[in-house]
Each structure stands twice: as C-alpha cells, then as structure tokens.
Amino acid sequence: MMKTILKAKLPEMLEQLAKEYKVLVPAKLEGVSRFAAYRENLELALDENVTMPPKDIFFPQTEEMYKFAAKDQSLEIEEIPQDEKLQVIFGVRSCDMKSIDCLDQVFLTKGFSDPFYQDKRDRSILIALSCVKPMESCFCTSMGIDPQKGQGADIQAYDLGEKLAFEGITERGQEVLNKVSGMFAEEDAAIPPMGEFNLTANVEGVPEKLKNMFDHSIWDDISRKCLNCSACAYVCPTCHCFDIASEVRGEDGVKIRCWDCCMFDEYTVMAGGHQPRPGKKERVRNRFLHKLRYFPERYNMLLCTGCGRCVVKCPVNLDITNVIKKIKEA
C-alpha cells in the first residue's frame, strides 16, 4: 500500500507544507531550472532533472562566513545569523541524492565537519523522486545508481504518470508525510519500469587503472579541445572546490567563500607565481583523476553520479563517458 496523490494536487500539498517548513522544489526560473523556494504559481519542473543541481542549497556559490570590523586597533567579528527553519527539499533525483552523499563525505567526515554545510544539511529533509524515462544525457545506472531509489532519502516519491506515490523512510520523513496525510489516497500502485538509457559508461577497474596513468599520453589527446572554463564544474552536483576571500570596504569586511574550479589559473598558482598546473593537460587530467581515482581512493566512491549535466553543458562536448572509454582502451 502506498500513499498517492494526483500530480495536479501537488501544489496544494506543497502549499500546506510551506506553512511549516521552508519548501524547495525544482522549478523553471528565468529560463533555467533549479531548486527554488515554493510559492504560488511557481512553474514546477518535474518532467526532467533540473539544470542546476541541489548542491547550492548546502554549498552556495557565494556564502558569507562572517563579518569583521577593524576599529581603533581592535578587531570585531560578527557571526552571520543562520536560518533556523527546517527545509523540505522535494524532487531530488537519484543521481543528485548520491551527489549529496559525495558532498557529505567531503564536508562532514574524516574528522572534519564544516559548520556552514552541516547546519544546512541538518535542517534538510530530502524527498527523492524516482525517474521513469532517462534524459538522453543520463548514465546513472552505469555509475551504480538506481534511478528509482534515492540513497539517503527521508521520503521516496515515485512518479506514476498521473500521480505521485510517497513512501516515508526515516522518522523525519514520516513526520512530514503525517502533516499532509489527509491529502493522500492509500492504494496499491505499480512503479512503472525504467526506460532505456541512451548513454552508458563502463567504470569497472577504472580507478585502479588510473593509478598508473598520470603520465599517459591520453591526457594530451583528451584535453586539447578543452577551453578551461568551469561550466562542467559549476553545473556538476559533486564538484565542491571553493576559495575563501575577503571583501573589505573601509573598516568593514566580510569573509566569503565561493565556488572555484581546477580549470582556473588562480586555483593552483602559488604565492611566488609558480604554476604547477600550467596548461590544459594538467588541469583536465586533474579533473578526471579527481573524479575517477583520488576521490574513490579517499572515500571509496566515484565523484561522478552520471547525471550528464557536464555532457550537455560543455561547449566542446568533452564527454566524461567518452573519457572513461578512452581510459579503458588506453
């Protein structure tokens, strides 16, 4: 037995939840689909995964860390007040659920806990949404992800076509469902089978193989067409590099942390001006070694979920599935 609701009734349900929680939903905003705070007449984007992943909910592109003021030789530090409200994030696809796991590893494990990330993460209740038809750029199954079951979800939602079904998984998730229980019908529902994937990748043995490929000529070949922009990293749900900067106006300042990317010159340039990764080859190699070797070595999982965003957005179609293929063949 599952709790079902007509898709047409979804806004009503979200409306109801928004009274208690901050509710974030996939929406089309100014031409780009991304997670946005629910409000009336918001154009929901439920047919396909969103262009911008949920990453910035936990790890915003620009985040103020603290403010400071230097007056009369003394320093005052002012903390930035954090939002206290619980947030319900509805409609996260399996690939993006996995990406949150990747981010958790970085920001919360191995003896480090990033308070900015942790705060937002702890306040979040995740409603995963199953896929029925993959987009032409999706290859999550190749990366060991079940597109119909989101890892780490508090609630799993299933797309049944006309309707949605909900299954409470954690206690927190159950609690959320209880708030709107009156809106659900209880029925037996069959989850539609997953459609065929257009794109695949075979990563078996790739992390191991890469251990001996740092100096391989493959990187010259792969990197040549790369433009060293950061479109791939900034749309990637798992890329998590950042840089910390201060913005100072007179006596007042604020520390900010902003997304950064291993394609940029400033990312690796050293104080004396030495650039250990001077060109395309070194930077592109770092991107793929990080995703397919270093991260698995450290955290025992790939830093790619097969969401396909970079495949679509890279201006020169530097396709990670193709890179994996070339590594296999090398």
């Binding site: 100014e30 950061s230 479109a231 900034y234």
Partner: peptide
C-alpha cells in the same frame, strides 16, 4: 539575465576576440 550567470567564463574562453594572456577577470 546576468543574475543567472555562474561566471564559468565559457563565453570568454571560447571567444576569438578574447586572447589576453592575463584576463582582467582572473585578477581577483
């Protein structure tokens, strides 16, 4: 329009009119 810019600099890097060795936008 520009509120959704993610400053990935793809537009700059692809551009044949942008060929400065050191770009002003890398001078943070």
């Amino acid at each position: 329009q520009y509120d959704r810019c993610i400053r990935c600099y793809a537009c700059r890097n692809v551009c044949p009119a942008c060929s400065c060795r050191e770009c002003v936008f890398d001078q943070t």
